[in-house]
């Protein structure tokens, strides 16, 4: 974890209320994993008081030339955000060249190397799907609204590590309210993923929720799904969780919660989880979205 003063490289509106911001936070960029987030102070002073957690959308790279004419590649972090309240409103007005105080990378990200997320308490990989990457199954990413942001980073890393055949095996289902709010379709396609779109109003692609699109996929596919990675609104994640358990497909879900500190100190962002070892219904445990999460296994969350 680092606390850095990061320079804004750009902060552009990409569509409607959606913005993309790039920050020079090399230490964070170098160590970040898909599903992790940063916590940003959007203004000086007390309004708003708290930082704003944003998931890392991708890692950018640029060639920086030093005075001795040697060129060096420098990584930076990119976040995608929607203006939804006072904090993100202020963030959207911040200009390139200004500095923001940023803490990160935070939390436990997606497991895509066969290692179960820390939150699951270290279950063996065969129960989590990751290590079976090399057989003929596919990975499915389900993105709802702003939940698209961290899944692009994941798709990038899946591409970097896989063979050509494996790259083709990532399927992405993107859900949005209307066709104007579909995010990152091109990014996923450029990464070699197969993309399907669902819109609530049917203005493009499948009409309905992206969870229903997943259900439809499951009824027609002739391949095996190894792992579902999902991020989006809570009702969507709840439904994905139900579907994944019904079909016994491992699913990793990235959650959002109101956070005060983001570093595991305040205990404010907890969610109810079941003890995976004991499997007893009435025994539950609160886990911190910022520390044990934000990625949890579908089976451990008590909705």
């Amino acid at each position: 974890m680092f606390q850095v003063s990061a320079k804004i490289i750009y902060n552009n509106k990409i569509k409607k209320n959606y913005f993309e911001i790039a920050l020079t936070a090399q230490q964070i960029a170098k160590s970040a994993l898909p599903g992790q987030f940063v916590n940003i102070k959007v203004s000086d002073g007390s309004e708003p008081l708290l930082r704003r957690p944003l998931s890392i959308h991708r890692i950018g790279r640029k060639v920086a030339r030093s005075q001795s004419h040697t060129s060096k590649e420098k990584e930076f972090i990119v976040m995608l955000y929607e203006v939804v309240g006072k904090g993100t409103e202020i963030l959207s007005t911040r200009k390139a060249g200004e500095y923001l105080d940023v803490i990160g990378p935070l939390g436990n990200g997606f497991d895509y190397e066969g290692r179960p997320p820390q939150s699951a308490g270290g279950r063996p990989p065969e129960q989590c799907g990751g290590r079976r990457m090399k057989d003929d199954g596919r990975i499915v990413l389900v993105a709802g609204g702003m939940g698209t942001a961290p899944l692009v980073f994941l798709a990038e890393r899946l591409r970097e590590r896989g063979t050509k055949d494996e790259r083709r095996r990532t399927k992405v289902l993107i859900g949005a309210k209307t066709k104007d709010s579909i995010l990152c379709e091109k990014e996923f396609r450029d990464l070699g993923c197969e993309v399907r779109v669902a819109t609530d109003d049917g203005s493009r692609g499948f009409k309905g929720y992206v969870s229903n699109l997943l259900k439809k996929e499951l009824s027609t596919i002739d391949y095996r799904i190894l792992t579902i990675y999902a991020c989006g609104p809570i009702p969507m994640l709840k439904e994905i969780s139900r579907i994944s358990l019904e079909h016994t497909i491992p699913a990793q879900l990235s959650l959002e919660s109101h956070m005060a500190c983001g570093i595991g100190a305040c205990m404010g962002c907890v969610i109810k989880t079941r003890d995976v070892e004991r499997e007893t219904k009435d025994v539950f445990e609160y886990k911190r979205v910022c520390k044990e999460g934000p990625v949890f296994e579908a089976g451990e969350i008590i909705w």
Binding site: S257, H258, C266, M267, G268, C269, V270, Y286
Partner: peptide
């Protein structure tokens, strides 16, 4: 265990 969320 503490109180149910939301807590903050």
């Amino acid at each position: 265990q503490g109180n149910p969320p939301p807590r903050t």
